[in-house]
Structure formats: C-alpha cells, structure tokens
C-alpha cells in the first residue's frame, strides 16, 4: 500500500515538474513580449517609450538570461509568488486568479456533478427502455455533437433576446455592486443560469450516452447472464450492472473535475462570464506571461489532484485495482 502510493506520488511530482516547465516555456515561444504589448496600448513619444520599456523589462525580470529567469520562476513559485500581471498591471497574479476562481467553481462544480449524476441515471434507464432510447438518446447525441459555442449563442439568443428572461453577459448587473443582499444574490443566480444550463445540457448528453453503452455491455456480461439463469430479480442484475458500469464514468468525472479551475473557456467567452477561462483568453491576447503561467498552473494542479483522488477512490471501489497494487508490491 505504502509502496504503491509512494510510487504514485513520485510520478505525480515528476509530472508536475515537467508540466510546470512546459507552462513556463510555452508563453515565451510566442513572438513579441508582454512589455511591447503594454506599451502598444499607451501612446507616448519614443524616448519615454524606451525608458518605460527598460523599466518594465527590468521589473518583470525579462532582462535576465533565460536560465536565470527559469530559476527565479521556480524560486518565486515555491514561495507562492506568481508575479505581477502585465495585462492588469500592477495587480499580482495570485489576486487576479483568486477573484476569478469562485465564479468557476460556482459554475462548473454544479454543472459537472449534476450532469454526471443525472446523465448516468438517465443513461442507465435508457439502456433498458426502447422507448426512451429511441426518443431521448438521439437528442443526447445531437447535444454532444453540437459545436458548443453555437449552442451557447443559440441559448443566449433564445432566452436572452427572444424571451428576454435571462441576462446574456457578466456575472451580475453593472448597476449593482457586490453585497450580501437577496437582490444581489438573485441577480447573480439569474446571470449564472444560462452558462450553467448550457454546460449541463452538453455534458448530460455525453454522460448519458456513455452510461447507456456501458450498461448494455454489462447486461451482456457473463455474470449478468448467470444471474438471469438463476432467476435473480431484474433489480439485482441492474444494480450489479450499474455498479460495474459506473467505474469508467468515475475516471471521466475526475478528469472533468480536474479542469474546473481552468474554467470553461468557451462558455465564459460566450456569456462574458469572469472566470479563469475568460481571463486566460485575455492573458494570451495580451501576451501576459505571468497570468498565462498562473492560469495553467492551476489547471496542472487541478488535473493532478483530481487524478490522485481518483486513484484512491478506484482502489476503494474496484477490487481489481487493489489486486494489481498488492501484486506489484510483492
């Protein structure tokens, strides 16, 4: 047991190191640099520009040799300092991210969990009901196959413009300031609904289709046939099939949960929702090395943590992985 987790931990640490290194490298491969980008937004004369250029380049540490930038990056990272955002200068990246994360979690956590629960249960029912399978499953296929941004825009257009029941942009109305009042909370919920609903629908279709296929497969498995031959009630056979079919869905859920902090980039762009996805797009457009690094760092940590958690959960729910574990330790 200890050996298993020790080995896993080592692999995760190694992955973390490599991923963070790539995270540091990638923005620097882009042509141009953040300082040039910042200066392009202000109109000053050339002498002032060259002074500012020098000042900012030094401030961001971009005048150092690359290897030293890299070492400084790790040193700061281990101290919890992600640097200063160039795009939202002079806010520190950590603060920018912390402001965005609550929106992501509030949007994605319910969307992912609820769609997982509903999709799996619906898929399991659809697997044994011809009628449901022929009517609702095709809708699931269409939903999953639809380009998401198109669906999002369609929803925004229909509910926001035609019916005019939901706002289509922002996390709350511009006329309100964040307070703990019913009016504000209601407003936030109203803004939250469309992005949530669009995510829910698309993921629901995916889970339902996966579960439907898994259940059909499990009901054809030998252990199901054996129980049938022994005249076991359908409820028992279905329960066993569900328990077996849900295992691969669990790993899928873990991967989804891992990218929560990454936000749903397209959703947030379509609905102008101020999560990390929205931020990441802005960061890339402005070549903000530090903000890009910060966003990706959260994604890396999220994915690794989720995988680690699911490794443990799997050991708890699936005896077969447990055997592999002791087998390797022996």
């Amino acid at each position: 047991m200890r050996k298993y987790f020790g080995r896993k931990l080592l692999i995760y640490l190694l992955t973390f190191f490599l991923a963070v290194t790539i995270d540091w490298l990638i923005p620097r491969f882009m042509p141009g640099n953040p300082v040039a980008n910042m200066l392009a937004r202000v109109s000053v004369n050339s002498t002032a520009a060259s002074v500012m250029q020098e000042y900012y380049t030094h401030l961001f540490g971009l005048d150092l040799p690359l290897w030293q930038q890299y070492l400084n990056f790790w040193a700061n990272l281990l101290r919890g300092d992600l640097g200063i955002s160039a795009y939202l200068f002079p806010k520190p990246v950590t603060q920018v991210l912390m402001n965005a994360i609550p929106y992501d979690v509030a949007l994605l956590l319910p969307a992912i969990l609820l769609s997982w629960l509903a999709g799996n249960n619906f898929g399991a029912v659809a697997a044994r009901s011809k009628w449901l399978d022929n009517t609702v499953s095709p809708i699931g296929y269409i939903l999953t196959a639809t380009p998401y941004m198109w669906l999002g825009i369609l929803l925004a257009w229909f509910f926001g413009i035609i019916l005019d029941v939901f706002p289509i942009a922002g996390a709350y109305s511009f006329s309100l300031s964040p307070t703990l009042s019913w009016k504000f909370i209601g407003d936030v919920l109203l803004h939250w609904f469309l992005p949530f609903f669009s995510l829910f629908m698309v993921q629901f279709g995916g889970w339902a289709i996966g579960m439907r296929n898994m259940i059909i497969y499990e009901l054809e498995a030998d252990y199901s046939h054996y129980l049938e031959a022994l005249g076991a009630p359908r409820s028992l056979i279905r329960r066993y099939a569900f328990n077996n079919a849900v295992l691969p869905q669990l790993s899928g859920l873990a991967l989804q949960l891992g990218v929560i902090v990454a936000g749903a980039l397209v959703t947030e762009v379509v609905f102008s929702y101020p999560g990390i996805g929205y931020l990441l797009l802005a960061a890339i457009q402005n070549q903000d090395y530090f903000l890009i690094q910060g966003c990706f760092l959260f994604i890396i940590i999220g994915v690794l943590l989720a995988n680690f958690v699911i490794d443990i959960v799997y050991v708890l729910v699936d005896p077969r992985t447990r055997r592999g574990m002791t087998g390797e330790a022996a």
């Binding site: 030998d222 252990y223 054996y226 066993y240 328990n243 077996n244 729910v317 699936d318 005896p319 077969r320």
Partner: peptide
C-alpha cells in the same frame, strides 16, 4: 466470469 467482479 460468472461472478460479479466487484463484489466479495
């Protein structure tokens, strides 16, 4: 393969 793999 007649027995449910995830039950004792």
């Amino acid at each position: 393969n007649a027995m449910n793999p995830i039950r004792k």
